[in-house]
Design a protein around this nucleic acid. Structure first.
Lengths: 144, 144
DNA sequence: AGCGTATCGTTGCATATGCAACGAAGTCAA
DNA sequence: TTGACTTCGTTGCATATGCAACGATACGCT
């Protein structure tokens, strides 16, 4: 057969690891708060950004704008965020965490940190270098 | 606001990087051979495994068995693989690359290596450590 | 052999996704 | 002001996905 080995192919390895790590964490919040991965991304971004448009999230969070829009609709229905029209530019929709949303983030933040730590624990002292490399790759991808 | 920063959250970073890297490579083979990412995974696995069942791929390639099944159907239609019933256990479907499939892999292998190298080039001498860490994380995930 | 159970691959179904197109709103220049 | 052009968020549509259920086959136990 060929000498190509899928299991050691970088894009494949990254995909598998990313899927497992993301799903592992989403199991926690899906069960507890009933939100999906795209919804988690939106509320997580809102927690650091305050009141923000769909477009802003779309650009910063690596999600199609329709995906952001639908996630926002579901989050509003669930009571985690509010949507209102921007006064200066009425094309914009301002998304903002509700109190319920902020409570959720307050609970999720330590869970996220613990989960991240549990994953990185495997790497022991190599974890910092790994994270640096990860950031390097992400930055490089931005400029293409 | 909260002190949670999505952009430095490991699951998020891995997802973004994995999506970009996989899509970057799939742009190449999608254009050239008209196959999708799941289809690429199947042929790539077949290139090292020879004749193999849907179940085997499902287990080894981190894909739902329906996803494998549908990818296989499309690949057969496109002429890249053949499907036949296993003689010993007639529940099993043996998948195998056709000559056209082997030709495709022969073209794709150097493209894959070049693409991987182009991504890792950014890391320079840190690339080997990064790959070691990646393998460590993948191995760790297997045992859970 | 015969019956209950397990496994294989496919398919139906509900939902998620990406992309394009749309209406609404804003901008700019004549 | 008007009209061409751009931008924003939503929606329609075709396709992809995960999951459960199914028919077919194999296995194990009596």
């Amino acid at each position: 057969m060929s000498d190509f080995d899928l299991n050691s192919f970088l894009p494949y390895q990254l995909s598998v690891l990313a899927a497992r790590v993301s799903l592992g964490f989403s199991d926690l919040y899906k069960q507890k708060f009933g939100i999906s991965i795209p919804e988690w991304r939106v509320v997580a971004h809102l927690s650091q950004a305050g009141s923000v448009s769909v477009r802003e999230i779309h650009q910063r969070v690596d999600m199609d704008k329709s995906k952001v829009s639908r996630a926002a609709t579901r989050l509003e229905t669930a009571g985690y965020i509010s949507k209102k029209i921007n006064g200066n530019d009425r094309r914009l929709v301002e998304l903002e965490l509700t109190q319920k949303g902020r409570d959720m983030i307050a609970e999720l933040t330590p869970m996220a940190q613990a989960y991240e730590a549990s994953v990185l624990k495997t790497l022991a002292d190599q974890a910092p270098d790994f994270r640096i490399a990860l950031n390097t790759l992400l930055k490089r991808q931005d400029n293409e």
